[in-house]
């Protein structure tokens, strides 16, 4: 009974696939929770940095720090955040698509574009197409720390100061909810001027070593935070996307198992009926 055995084999194979996808979904759920916790943990720090920045007195002119100063755009850096691993639905293709759109738009406006990537997926995409990549960071999936974000941010700021490029955009998945991630573009550099709450009473702060020094150290910090946040958002989105994808895969596998089981039973019944008919037919033949 070859077909019976074939169906049985398929059922078993689909069953083991379902086992894997179910396990992956559970792993992703745990990782997602961790990523979310870290996003929440960052929030007070990010808020407070903003607070300190805005409590710095008003006369912070735009030319006080090169990171604040817009200059004629010639080269624009696009940093695309993807994951290292696949099996997470449209997570990577969405963000890459948005990145490529941005790159094409910038190119059609006559700018030079330099591309950097976080994650293996974006790197592979551009490599396959023979596009030159300025900088690649991989192996960060699931191991994002503040210092790894610092490294990325410092690299960007350094090249920005050297005028390798005159503007930096991040393209990443923003975590909305477990079922919804949104691709966003964020202009990282130059920094938009800090908005002061004008109605807030300005205190006379004493600065040590000097207001400028404090400001100069605070600005890069705020960039590091933005990069760190983008990386955490992307991480959480990745796990959420994988969770959804794996859940769908599990449901599909279960549907398939049901269908195959039905087919298997039908085939079994058919074979029994056929055997019976053979026996009855044989007995009839003997009678005569």
């Amino acid at each position: 009974m070859a077909t019976l055995r074939d169906i049985k084999r398929r059922i078993n194979s689909v069953k083991s696939t379902a086992k894997i996808t179910r396990a992956m979904k559970m792993v992703s759920a745990a990782k997602l929770r961790r990523a979310q916790e870290r996003m929440f943990a960052l929030r007070p720090y990010a808020d407070k940095i903003g607070e300190v920045l805005s409590s710095l007195s008003q006369p912070v002119e735009q030319d006080v720090h090169p990171l604040l100063m817009p200059r004629p755009r010639k080269t624009v850096e696009v940093l695309i955040l993807t994951s290292d691993k696949g099996l997470c639905g449209a997570f990577n293709s969405n963000v890459i698509k948005a990145g490529v759109n941005l790159i094409n738009r910038l190119k059609s406006e006559g700018f030079e574009v330099s591309i950097s990537t976080i994650g293996r997926k974006a790197r592979d995409y551009f490599k396959r197409r023979g596009v030159e990549i300025r900088e690649v960071w991989t192996g960060l999936s699931g191991k994002i720390t503040y210092s790894s974000a610092q490294e990325v941010a410092r690299n960007l700021m350094e090249h920005y100061m050297n005028e390798t490029f005159d503007e930096v955009h991040l393209v990443y998945n923003e975590f909305k909810t477990v079922v919804a991630q949104k691709v966003v573009e964020l202009k990282l550099l130059p920094i938009a001027p800090v908005e002061h709450e004008t109605d807030k009473e300005m205190k006379d702060f004493l600065f040590e070593p000097s207001e400028e020094e404090v400001f100069n150290r605070l600005l890069p910090k705020s960039i590091e935070i933005l990069v760190y946040r983008a990386m955490l958002e992307s991480q959480a989105s990745e796990e959420a996307a994988r969770m959804t994808a794996m859940e769908n895969a599990t449901t599909n596998a279960e549907d398939m198992i049901d269908r195959l089981t039905l087919e298997y039973n039908k085939a079994r019944q058919a074979s029994i009926t056929k055997e019976l008919m053979d026996i009855v037919g044989g007995a009839e033949a003997l009678k005569e």
């Binding site: 710095l56 702060f205 004493l206 070593p209």
Partner: peptide, 12 residues
């Protein structure tokens, strides 16, 4: 050192 009543102060 900071004691209650310190003037507003920011430092690295």
């Amino acid at each position: 050192g900071v004691l209650p009543g310190h003037v507003p102060f920011i430092t690295t």
